[in-house]
Design a protein around this nucleic acid. Sequence first.
DNA 1: ATGGTAGTCTAACTA
Length: 267
Amino acid sequence: MQIATWNVNSLRVRLPQLLEWLRTNPVDVLALQETKLQDADFPVAALEAAGYGVTFSGQRTYNGVAVLSRAPVTDLVTEVPGFEDAQRRVLALTTSGLRIIDLYVPNGQALDSEKFQYKLRWLEAVATWVAAEARAHERLVVLGDFNIAPEDRDVHDPAAWEGGVLVSPAEREQLQRLLAATGLIDVFRRFEQPAKSYSWWDYRMLGFRRNHGLRIDLILASPALAKRCRGCRIDIAPRRLERPSDHAPVLASFDLDETTRDGAPRD
DNA sequence: ATGGTAGTCTAACTA
């Protein structure tokens, strides 16, 4: 079972790249962010033809999340309980025995901005919701664009970023609180990784060519699922293409067989 | 000290 997340920064622009990527990376579940499409404009037919069911919560111009899945979907949620929000940033569903929560965390713009306060309030509400989902679902994956680099090793130049959004103590603490409250695990760090591994590079200042990136796209798994995670990697190939998204996809593979070859339960 | 690029939609906002 392969699961991935990709902030495509406009699904309309990136659809050809997405279809090509799915051909060579036939993942079972793909969480998308920043689709920037109203539901009526979602490219249902093209993705169904590629072998995926589509579930989406869209908005014109900004935000928008979607999940592509090979297996049927149930129990769709597109609102954070008790949190009024016109912005389409969350999508939860169940497929293949897994609870999937796709998140597009607010960027926050600047630490002294109204948008940063919104980011913190949003994270607070989402943490409460995800904690409830974690209690209800043993096999939970929370993935997406978190717009938070968890640690300094996830930042190309921590000194240059100090005092900025994506790395500030306030939002990092919110992320750590979410992990502590839910037991969720950042599976990327469960495996040996190349040094300076990032998932997002600014379009400006030759960010990608100089590997001036941040790792802000995460796959979090519940303890029961993290135990079954067999790998996690960032695929930077799409970031090299003409007219790329500023984010690269992140993939994780899970071994969900209930038993080993000799029939004994695996743990 | 500021700007650089991309997407949406042609003005300015968001990232």
